[in-house]
Each structure stands twice: as C-alpha cells, then as structure tokens.
C-alpha cells in the first residue's frame, strides 16, 4: 500500500550554485601560492617558517576565541588561514617568529574578531596586523635582506628564533628596498628586477609577475572585483606619469610605482577583500582610484618610502561612505523617468 515518505518543507529557490564561501577562500589562497612559492625561492626556509607561523597563530587565535566566547567553529570558513598567509606576505624575511605570532594575534583578534568576526570588520585584518607590527617594531619591519644573497635554501635569513623582546642585532646583510633607494638616494631599480622579483622587500612584495598570475586568475573567476585593481593601477599610472613628466629627476616613472613595494600585493589581494571594499561597482571604481592616488601621494610626499598599507586602510574607512553615495539606480527607478519627462518637455 501507500509508502510513507517524509516530505521536506522549505522555501524556494531549490537550486543553488555549488561554490560556497570556504571554497572561495580556498581559491584565493591557491591564487597566492605562486607568489608564496616565489617567496620560498627568494628567501628560503625563513619565508616558509614565517608563513607557517602566521597561519598557525591565525587559526589558534580564532579557535581559542571561539572556545572562550562559545561561538560556533568558524575555522572551516578559511578566512583565518587566508588572513595569516596574507599577513606573512607583507612581512620582511628577517623578522623574528615571535613578532609574526604577535602580529597575527593582533590581526585576527583586533582586526577581525572584536568587530564580530568574518564579514563585520571595517579594516583589512592582515593590514591591521601589519600596521600594528610596523608601529611597534619599526626597525625590524624596515630591515630587509636581499633575495638570494648567496644563501642556500636551508640557511636562516636572520635570527628567526630570537626570544621575545630581546633587542636583537640587526642582521648583517641588510639592504634597502627599491622604494627606499628611490626615496632616499634617488636611485631607480631596473624594471626587470622589479617585475621578476629579484629585489629586496617583504615576502610577497618581490615578484609582480607571480602576483599578477594569481590576480588574473581571481578576476577571471570573479573572486575579486576587477574594477578595484583596474582603477587603482590607472590612477597610479596617471598621477605618477604626471609627476614624472613635471620633474623626471625627482619623481619615478609609473612602472616603478606599479611594480615596486607592496602595490601589486595590495592592489590584487588586499584592496579586493570584499568585506572591506564597497558593495557597488561605482563604489569600487572610486575606492580603487582613491587608493592609487593615496599611494602615489604618500610615496612621493610622505615621510615613508611605502604607502600601500596606509592607503588601503584609509580607504577601508571610507568604504561605508562610498556605499552610501554610489548606489546605482534600480530597474524602473522613478528618477530615470523624471529625467526623461523633463527632457520631453
């Protein structure tokens, strides 16, 4: 006779695209892998240890926080892991690991969790962690070792295992980044070194090529909004070229700005963080352009050689405002028709 079947009641739609938020996070992490591999190539095991430490402490911080506050397990969404890796990419290869751990803790706890976790933070967590470290340990954060430097993969770039708060002697083989060479010595690094990554800098700042590979993949798969980096690059090109045209002696050409320092990493992986960027396409155009302008201004006229981090953090703060002013008209928006009527009269 009649079989008993249990019918589920829920609300339409019953079709769903398959890619969920953890999958998106995983894809962004994969997109970072070429640049991460580049970091290993240039900086050896130090880079690996920094990345692993950051990722471990990111998970640890969020896991412990969840336990203490009785929240559900959020580690599976992959965002903590991504924040850890992103932060690692912004750090200099010679940084002691305890600083990495501390910075990661700050990034996750203060940058994200106290705002309410994933989706609620105003500022990019990885950059919050990096800003904290920069403010706390300015010397270490601006001490760079040259890539390769004749060391083999297994050789430490610095005293990675220094105990916390022991004043460490700055690594002997320190060098200047292309940006500081430009700023303080007026010396321009050749294009090829910048593009391929054979220049001093943070783990993920060296090879523009490898970052671009990841960025193009993400844009093609719609993991990032291509309008942000496009607007950013365009603004940098225009403003830097204008300055260079005014005075080629003092101001670097646009390609130098584009491919040096954290610009590629910032433009493709940080500014595009959906949580902290605007929710409309118009807003994203303005957001990217704002960052580009600030980067050139800070780099050229500010006291620091690099300005990507502050440019993005500042624009993060502006993005709620951009959401407000850049709402596109909806289908059948009455405003459109008023305009037409006025036109007809």
């Amino acid at each position: 006779m009649e079989k008993k079947i249990e019918l589920l009641l829920s609300s339409s739609p019953f079709l769903k695209q398959q890619e969920d938020t953890p999958a998106v996070m995983r894809q962004v992490i994969y997109s970072l892998l070429p640049a991460a591999a580049g970091a290993l190539w240039f900086f050896g095991i130090s880079a690996l240890l920094i990345m692993l430490t950051a990722m471990l402490f990111a998970l640890l911080t969020e896991g412990v926080y969840n336990k203490l506050t009785g929240r559900a397990n959020t580690l599976r969404d992959g965002s903590a892991l991504l924040t850890g890796l992103l932060l690692a990419m912004t750090l200099p290869p010679g940084i002691p690991l305890w600083m990495v751990a501390l910075g990661t803790f700050f990034a996750i706890a203060i940058g994200k969790l106290i705002f309410g976790g994933l989706g609620s933070n105003i500022f990019n967590p990885a950059l919050v962690g990096r800003a904290f470290l920069q403010a706390s340990f300015p010397v270490t954060l601006t001490t760079w070792v040259a890539p390769g430097n004749g060391l083999s993969f297994m050789q430490w770039r610095s005293a990675a295992f220094t105990l916390p708060f022991v004043r460490e002697k700055v690594a002997a083989v320190s060098t200047a980044t292309p940006l500081s060479m430009m700023k303080f010595e007026g010396q321009l690094t050749p294009f090829k070194a910048l593009f391929l990554g054979n220049s001093a800098g943070s783990l993920g700042e060296t090879s523009a090529l490898l970052l671009l590979l990841g960025g193009i993949y993400m844009a093609a798969r719609h993991y990032i909004n291509w309008r942000i980096p496009t607007a950013l690059f365009a603004t940098v090109i225009v403003t830097a070229s204008a300055l260079h045209w005014l005075n080629p002696e003092t101001y670097a050409p646009f390609w130098f700005h584009l491919f040096s320092g954290g610009l590629m990493l910032g433009a493709l992986f940080m500014a595009t963080d959906p949580v902290t960027s605007p929710v409309t396409h118009r807003g994203c155009w303005l957001f990217g352009a704002g960052i580009g302008l600030l980067v050139v201004v800070i780099r050229t006229f500010g006291g620091l050689p690099e300005g990507v981090m502050y440019a993005i953090l500042l624009m993060n703060g502006v993005s709620p405002l951009l959401n407000r002013i850049a709402q596109p008209p909806i289908y059948g928006d009455p405003a459109k028709f008023k305009k037409n009527e006025a036109h007809n009269e």
């Binding site: 969920d20 938020t21 953890p22 998106v24 969404d77 965002s79 976790g117 994933l118 989706g119 609620s120 719609h222 909004n225 959906p274 949580v275 960027s277 929710v279 409309t280 396409h281 596109p328 008209p329 909806i330 289908y331 059948g332 928006d333």
Partner: peptide, 17 residues
C-alpha cells in the same frame, strides 16, 4: 556563513537591488 559582501547578489539581481 556570514555575508562577505562579495557582490555576487548585486551582480545578478535583475531589478538592480
């Protein structure tokens, strides 16, 4: 999961909401 404001819904809404 929490909304990460990825904009995909904005990209598909036929009414532009």
């Amino acid at each position: 999961y929490p909304c990460i404001r990825c904009l995909r819904c904005v990209d598909v809404c036929p009414v532009g909401l």
